[in-house]
Amino acid sequence: MDTLDWLILTRHGESTGNVAYRAAYERGAEETGILERDADIPLSEAGRVQAAGLGRWLAALPEGERPTLVLTSPFLRAAETARIALEQAPYAVPVRVDERLRDRDQGVFEGLTSFGIRARFPEEYTRKRRIGKFYYRPPGGESWADLALRLRSLYRDLHEQEPGGRVLAVAHDAIVVMTRYVVEGLSEPEILEIEKTPIGNCSVSRWRHDGGRLCPIIYNDISHLA
């Protein structure tokens, strides 16, 4: 059956939101202090440097491994990462935006740290602990299982529309993690154990078609950013 030859995923470079969340968490604050809506959070200066480093990695790929299509989340931090990275590549590749690659919707929890969630939504905090991270859906938001549904749709379309293609997707940490779940057929306990290790900004994860399926080659690699 025709299918993708390569699937490459990267998380966006460090964003101003990443910086703000870390600072708020270290202070024990309830709110992140992020003023933009999630879709409009830009890269930090360090994130732009990381995106250029990703671009140098893309430029060094052998011709037979270079992406033939780039997909990006519509969120600004991902689109900026794709643009900066591709400016480093000595070859042209079409770029498409796909909303199925957007970050997980946090619903009423958006703008809050874990301290804020526990203080302002104690019943939901308890409910999340009971249901578990994978299936819990915050009010107005998405569960990890919801991400799996949209990713199954995305990858089914890519297999049909890009047979033999090499696709690079620029997205978010939860998308990278749940791609492993979907592509590798993992279980809930397996993916929650994998998720304990944070996904690096501009890290690279790759799968290659080998016989009947996409097989993992490397995951969450940041050696190209050294």
Rank of each mutant, 00 (worst) to 15 (best):
A46G: 14
L151H: 04
G55K: 00
G107C: 06
L4N: 09
D2I: 14
E14M: 15
A89G: 12
E193P: 09
A82E: 08
R56T: 11
G116L: 04
R27M: 07
K133T: 01
R137S: 01
A39R: 12
E195Y: 15
K133I: 03
V93T: 12
L61Y: 09
V93Y: 00
E65T: 11
I199D: 03
P62M: 09
D2P: 15
F75C: 13
G107V: 05
G140S: 07
Y135A: 08
L101Y: 00
I191C: 12
F115G: 12
E142F: 01
I41S: 07
D38I: 09
A92G: 11
D98S: 08
P74A: 09
Y155W: 14
S44Q: 11
D146I: 04
L112E: 02
A174T: 04
L54F: 07
V176Y: 00
T72G: 08
D157V: 11
L149Q: 13
R96D: 10
R180S: 10
G53V: 02
R104F: 06
A174P: 09
R206K: 15
S44F: 04
L86H: 09
R129L: 01
I117Q: 00
T197K: 15
V170T: 06
F109I: 00
D38E: 09
S205M: 05
L76P: 14
D103K: 05
W57S: 04
D105Q: 12
A79F: 08
L158I: 07
V49A: 15
E87G: 14
R48F: 04
R22Q: 13
Q106G: 12
V95S: 05
M1T: 13
W144R: 14
R48Q: 14
R22A: 12
M1W: 11
L192V: 11
Y91F: 15
L4D: 13
R150T: 03
Y25F: 12
V19Y: 05
G116M: 03
F109N: 03
K128N: 02
L186K: 14
T197M: 13
G13N: 11
W6I: 13
E188T: 15
A29R: 06
F109M: 07
I194V: 15
L192M: 15
P138C: 06
L168K: 01
R120Q: 04
V183A: 09
Y219P: 11
G164D: 05
R102Q: 09
G200A: 11
E123R: 05
R137H: 02
F134K: 09
F121T: 04
G212S: 10
P74Q: 06
A60S: 15
L71K: 05
E124D: 02
R66K: 06
L112M: 08
E63K: 12
V93P: 02
V176H: 03
T16Q: 15
G53Q: 10
P198S: 12
L71S: 03
D210K: 14
L4M: 10
A46R: 15
E190H: 11
T179D: 11
